[in-house]
């Protein structure tokens, strides 16, 4: 048996040519990770991302063509914490690519390189809705996490393609410098609004809100993943009226009439924000995305 496995391992190592001279193929679930990989890797990487930036990342079809991309990928980057649990695992098994299996250098689970929030203190079950038992997976929308993810990507790219070490470090430095400059700018813009209360549709903004100094006063979904009925909307509006909520934030794939209703009841501003790179015009890069969202929030609060 062990001899057979050894033979297989030799065969598999032969079938994956060294990436020297070639580009590193990076496959990601959400587009932000692909864009960060391009920031770091420049033209040493090619990227493919599965989730459309205007699509709910919880519910993605496991299109068989994704398995084709995974089959010859050098690096897989995904959000983790069960965000993609409904569709990514069978694709990974179909692809059968040893280099991107869990535990390998080519397997980057973002939830292991950023501090997760909302981690349930004890056991959970689905009576609490579609909770993520490992914590909230919507991590990338905090620019500090963007930097952490870029650093992690750099370390993986260096290990997979040692010849590109200089290029990757340069790419990371350049990205970190631009992001750092922007973060100072954003902080100044947001400073006057610290403590402002907002309502969100789904609990997908906690990383952004905490970084931006805003406070989540409630969610429109009564429980994670459970759509709000009219009675839920009214109850939420009753509970929060007079609470000083100024923004109602949701992604484009959540019902805008619910956002609008709650905003109107609370005298707040409805704000549909992209949560992924490419999710709106002018959000073609990760930095542009955060920039767009910060300015949208600041404009709405002015």
């Amino acid at each position: 048996m062990s001899r057979m496995l050894a033979a297989l391992s030799v065969a598999s190592s032969l079938s994956f040519p060294a990436s020297a001279g070639a580009t590193v193929k990076v496959v990601t679930t959400i587009p932000d990770f692909a864009q960060l990989a391009r920031e770091v890797g420049g033209d040493r990487v090619t990227t493919v991302s599965f989730v459309s930036p205007t699509q709910d990342p919880h519910f993605v079809d496991a299109r068989p063509s994704f398995a084709v991309d995974l089959a010859d990928a050098d690096l897989l980057i995904y959000a983790g914490a069960e965000l993609e649990a409904g569709w990514l695992p069978p694709l990974l098994r179909t692809a059968g690519n040893a280099g991107i299996m869990p535990g390998e250098t080519g397997h980057l689970n973002v939830a292991t390189v950023v501090p997760l929030k909302d981690t349930p203190p004890g056991a959970v079950d689905r009576s609490q809705g579609d909770v993520h038992p490992l914590g909230n997976p919507h991590t990338w929308i905090d620019p500090r996490n963007g930097l952490r993810i870029a650093i992690a990507i750099t370390s993986r790219l260096k290990a997979l393609d040692p010849d590109g070490t200089d290029a990757y470090e340069t790419g990371l430095r350049d990205f970190a410098r631009r992001l750092g400059d922007k973060m100072k700018e954003w902080k100044d813009l947001l400073a006057p609004y610290a403590g402002t209360k907002v309502v969100v549709y789904h609990k997908s903004w906690i990383y952004f809100l905490e970084w931006a100094g805003l406070v989540e006063a409630g969610t429109i979904e009564p429980l994670p993943g459970v759509p709000a009925a009219d009675s839920d909307l009214t109850a939420l509006a009753d509970r929060l009226s007079g609470n000083g909520v100024r923004l109602v934030i949701g992604e484009s794939y959540y019902p805008s009439d619910s956002l609008g209703f709650v905003a109107e009841q609370l005298g707040a501003t409805e704000l549909t924000l992209p949560a992924m790179t490419g999710g709106a015009t002018g959000c073609d890069t990760y930095i542009d995305l955060i920039d767009h969202d910060v300015h949208a929030v600041v404009d709405a609060l002015q």
């Binding site: 391992s9 250098t105 997979l160």
Partner: peptide
Amino acid sequence: LHRTAARRAAGPL
């Protein structure tokens, strides 16, 4: 047992 050539190159790392 499994290592791609790229990973072998990065072995010491």
